[in-house]
Nucleic acid binder design. Structure first.
Lengths: 353, 353
DNA sequence: ATGAAAGCGCTAACAC
DNA sequence: GTGTTAGCGCTTTCAT
């Protein structure tokens, strides 16, 4: 019996790799029994279990996940495919997904799908290569939504309504209602000339379309019509593009008295430019956004925004994936889950006395 | 010969897993030859290569990374251990690391080490479990730095000076010089009562100590002494904590005329609170930070900050890991690499005319 | 309740 | 240049 690999487990230096068979030999049992102990298999006597666990600790055994993956055909990874980590919305979401996944012993692979070309790479590497047990995908643009069919046969959970035609589970927010509520709030403040920044119909970004729908509903209900000169598209929904676009709005013969921004990054950029231009927010123009980034509590003035329950969103996504991965639920019909939101009113829409 | 698995590769539905041996059979060669082709092994005749490549495409072969990892003892993963994605500095860094890693066909596993306890988990799962070919670690607090010894026998690259005693490569910025430059800039603007927010000696965060050193050097050179009542510690270097701490500074009998913030998040929080309190920045108090977050171009006023070359930082880290993973360079002495920075002056320290 | 043995798909000596 | 042969460490029937 070779016990040169034994030790406290904390011994520094190059200790040889410890396998299950080493542990089995050390404990005087078979590899299968060791495996049973590791998997909390019920049919192991307490004494055997104790013996094996002692050996596990004594030898400092660590499972080799590659071997486990090969033998079990489950990798222990899930992929989270998001446009990019450079948006607080996504980095926060990623954090929550990692936490939720950890509860099922899943490790999260983050794939940045800045362009649909990169999504394709992600699919190849992650989805197609048997590398992951499941994929959580936020199909940001419609071109990405088309791609979802490509790997619809995997365990796939979609975030948002994009690609909802696919036969996959999806977890979403009620973006239409959220947008409607923001606009209703703006209307309640007496605003009637509401412009949009980065929100318009037929946008390649699905989220934009939904927010536009809510925008229209609220205006309709108030008997107002949508003015196309107030619909400002944005190449990217980021601060610099938003700041630049504000000038166009201010140059209109009849400038808006409120701006509904696609997200808080857009809101941040808009606020900065309005300030530079000497516009008083909210007195001259009110501004609102979506996502409730932490930053929005600290802008000048603080930004009214919609807060999504991202923790719940992440949790539901992982839950769905977990349910599908249990073979029982594998072929149940797709589930649609809606998570909550709330409007956080700050001084960018309501002046303080 | 079983060719039921054949197809265009784009056929939807459950196509059976294609192995190298299937490809070999289809091409009429051995599995080794297929492997040679896949690895761009030189000794393959052009005709054989073409034949194999055709079969590869015809059958829609995808390598099984678990099997490859088990056989080759290389997983194709590297870990990036950072405090958290909720700081733009880290999420930007993560993006760059992913890009750099992709050039070496590495997939990046992001581990959030919010506390050192979690770092330990990361070590267990990632570093210790033969799951990764290397680790890039930013030991944020000194307690984390101690942990680095635990897996110093892995391929490990440290970011920053923390844990630099270990025998690992490290890639760092010249934080001391950067801090000195900011303070020199402040002094050049005629500021003499410079406070710090989240920067102090003996901080458990290594980066804080270094910035403090640069701060002291600049004051010394100007013949000024460090006032301990101006050194404001922060429980977390984030906006809310910074905003709260500003009140303490303003309550001093002789308030500061400049605030050096640990990072731009702190700067953002400080600016917001100063604004609320009716303090004019920069006329009454100048504010500067570190990291040059995109946000800092949009705060009120825009925030003077130090910009690090994060892309270079990421690239160097991955390069070092790659060099070590080639057995030739494995036991060369540790390398220290310093990447550049530059001071970006904005209106939080210099009033516009 | 535990053991024996096969095999997951790939890589890497080593022959030919 | 190409084929043969062993494993990598684990899971998983199937016996016992």
């Amino acid at each position: 019996m070779d016990i040169t690999a034994a030790g406290t487990g904390a011994v520094p230096g190059r200790s040889r790799r410890v396998r299950q068979s080493d542990v089995a030999a050390h404990a005087g049992v078979s590899a299968k029994t060791v495996s049973n102990v590791l998997h909390d298999h019920p049919y192991v006597s307490a004494s055997t279990r104790a013996k094996v666990e002692a050996s596990l600790v004594a030898l400092g055994y660590r499972v080799n996940l590659s071997a486990r993956a090969l033998a079990s055909d489950r990798t222990g990874f899930i992929a989270l495919a998001i446009p990019g980590l450079d948006n607080p919305y996504y980095s926060e979401l990623a954090g929550h997904v990692m936490d939720a996944a950890a509860q099922h012993d899943w490790i999260v692979l983050i794939e940045q799908t800045r362009s649909s070309a990169e999504l394709e790479t992600a699919v190849v590497r992650g989805g197609g290569a048997q590398l992951v047990d499941g994929v959580i995908l936020q199909p940001d643009s419609t071109s990405q939504a088309e791609l979802t069919d490509r790997f619809a046969h995997h365990n796939l959970v979609l975030i948002g309504e994009g690609g909802a035609t696919a036969s996959s589970d999806h977890v979403t927010t009620d973006a239409v209602a959220a947008a409607r509520e923001v606009v209703e709030h703006l209307l309640a403040q007496g605003r009637t000339r509401i412009a949009t920044l980065g929100i318009q119909p037929q946008d390649r970004a699905n989220a934009s379309e939904l927010r536009y729908r809510g925008f229209c509903q609220a205006l309709d209900a108030a008997g107002l019509s949508v003015r196309s000169d107030y619909l400002t598209p944005l190449a990217r929904s980021r601060r610099p593009e938003a700041a630049a676009a504000v000038d166009g709005l201010l140059a209109l013969p009849e400038p808006p008295d409120a701006i509904l921004c696609f997200n808080d990054l857009v809101g941040s950029g808009a606020l900065a430019r309005l300030r530079e231009r000497g516009i008083n927010v909210p007195n001259d123009i009110a501004v609102a956004g979506f996502d409730d980034n932490e930053e929005s509590r600290f802008t000048a003035p603080p930004l009214t925004s919609v807060s999504w329950d991202l923790e719940a969103l992440a949790q539901r996504c992982v839950e769905r994936l977990f349910a599908r991965s249990r073979s029982g639920d594998a072929h149940l019909p797709p589930v649609r889950t809606v998570i909550g939101h709330r409007l956080v009113v700050r001084e960018s829409t309501v002046a303080t006395s």
